[in-house]
């Protein structure tokens, strides 16, 4: 566990991108990436939830470790994440009702976003300390936003293109995701984690 903070950040942002290399958070990635105007706020909201969840998970893990209750880890993480999402939802409803409506069902679904729970679980499994956890969750959130924005831009562009009817829909989105993932593999030499 001697990785530097920048190493962790770059690695989770590009090399081990949560969406494209580790397959976390695919549901919103395929669901909300239709338009750029909703993709970006969705990414930022998820990033915020990730940071808070990571913070809480770090504290919780210490607490559970102290009382030797490790088997409750999963249950307590998911409850904490659900409350964080509720908080974000309330704040967003108050300050940006239009965005709240645009995101619709996908906002409460951040709870079941594997990327958020993934951050909490991976930082525990890799025994990151406090600042490392923060760098990890910030990199993960930024990487998620990056992938979402790239995908949304590609899909907006493709609406003008002439695509065979057979490929249209999910198959096309998946092929695009595959190509993006292939591109991100080019970063492999940047920050070698593991």
């Amino acid at each position: 566990m001697t990785e530097s903070l920048s190493q962790i950040f770059i690695s989770t942002l590009l090399t081990n991108n949560f969406v494209l290399a580790m397959f976390l958070g695919l549901c919103p990635f395929l669901g909300v990436s239709g338009r750029l105007s909703t993709a970006f706020p969705m990414g930022v909201a998820t990033m915020f939830v990730m940071l808070v969840a990571s913070l809480c998970a770090y504290g919780l893990n210490m607490l559970l470790g102290y009382f030797h209750l490790e088997f409750l880890r999963l249950i307590s993480y998911i409850v904490v994440i659900a409350s964080c999402v509720q908080l974000v939802e309330m704040v967003m409803k108050k300050y940006s009702p239009a965005l709240f409506r645009a995101l619709g069902i996908y906002l409460p679904l951040i709870t079941t976003n594997c990327a958020v729970l993934g951050v909490a679980l991976f930082q525990t499994a890799r025994e990151y300390d406090f600042s490392q956890s923060m760098a990890f969750s910030f990199g993960g959130g930024a990487g998620f936003t990056l992938a979402l924005v790239l995908m949304a831009s590609l899909r907006e562009r493709l609406q003008l293109a002439n695509v065979p009817t057979l490929v249209q829909g999910t198959a096309l989105t998946l092929i695009l995701a595959g190509l993006l993932s292939l591109t991100f593999m080019g970063f492999a030499g940047l920050g070698s984690l593991e």
Partner: peptide, 15 residues
Amino acid sequence: VLPPGGFFVLAAWLL
């Protein structure tokens, strides 16, 4: 067996 392959194989099945 690399990540992009997962996307491609699923896309191929859907196709």
